[in-house]
């Protein structure tokens, strides 16, 4: 009984998502505020870049979520193609605009950071170009998913696109390792960080804050998409009756 299964889970999802949404959004905003204040007021400047280094507390979380958003789309696409669970399709569609926004914020904050440090707003190096491509891929995904939904598609085509697009994630990650670029190498790895602890410590706070906020926005959009699907189904039933 696939129809019952599909109906039951969104209901349970909504029951959890409704109270969780404001919680995530407000906790995220609070953490971002605390982390930003700490990053502006409490940490020392960098020996080379001076106060410019503080853009990091915004730039790194936006980059992380720009890429994390696409990982979410790819995982949801896998789940949708394998288990055909409608919530997975809706999750992927809900993540796309949030991920695109954060990818754009990453490009903008990086550009503002690049001008005083590197001496340029933009260069076509491997890291910058691959991140810009990810932003365009997000735009393509949104157009495709929308067209698919409007023409009564079942979401399989955007899901395939979601999996194909993950080719960009290793490119972005390893662009600064394998190619020579203007962008510096990886500061934060699995084993440690090349950023001194006195400068680094507010970064996890803004990172978690932006991530919670991102999750809250995604839940909000998932609920809106579910609501729209429900309304359309009801209108169709009424038109038939």
């Amino acid at each position: 009984m696939p129809s019952l299964h599909a109906l039951a889970n969104p209901t349970r999802f909504l029951r959890i998502a409704r109270p969780l949404t404001p919680l995530l959004v407000w906790a995220g905003i609070a953490l971002v505020a605390i982390g930003t204040w700490a990053g502006l007021a409490l940490t020392p400047p960098d020996y080379l870049q001076g106060d410019t280094v503080r853009i990091m507390y915004l730039h790194v979380p936006t980059a992380w979520l720009g890429m994390g958003g696409w990982s979410g789309i790819a995982l949801s696409s896998v789940a949708y193609l394998v288990w055909r669970h409608p919530l997975a399709n809706i999750a992927a569609r809900a993540i796309a605009p949030a991920g695109a926004t954060f990818a754009a914020l990453c490009l903008i904050s990086g550009s503002i950071w690049g001008r005083p440090t590197w001496g340029t707003w933009w260069q076509w190096d491997g890291r910058l170009t691959s991140m810009l491509l990810l932003f365009f891929v997000y735009c393509g995904y949104m157009a495709l998913a929308r067209a698919d939904a409007e023409r009564g598609g079942d979401g399989r085509v955007p899901a395939v696109f979601g999996i194909a697009g993950s080719a960009l994630l290793p490119v972005i990650r390893y662009s600064v390792v394998w190619w020579n670029t203007l962008h510096q190498g990886q500061s934060i790895g699995l084993t440690g960080s090349t950023i001194d602890r006195s400068i680094l410590w507010p970064l996890p706070i803004t990172l978690v804050g932006f991530t919670l906020f991102f999750a809250g926005v995604v839940l909000m959009r998932m609920r809106a998409l579910l609501g729209r699907i429900k309304t359309e189904a009801r209108l169709r039933r009424m038109a038939r009756a």
Binding site: T117, Q184, S187, I199
Partner: peptide, 23 residues
């Protein structure tokens, strides 16, 4: 000319006297 900095960020007092005076 473009400046390329590395991935090590640290406060001036750690980077040594020379950098400190410059910053």
């Amino acid at each position: 000319l473009l400046a390329k900095h590395d991935e090590k960020y640290m406060p001036p007092e750690l980077a040594g006297k020379m950098h400190e005076t410059r910053t």
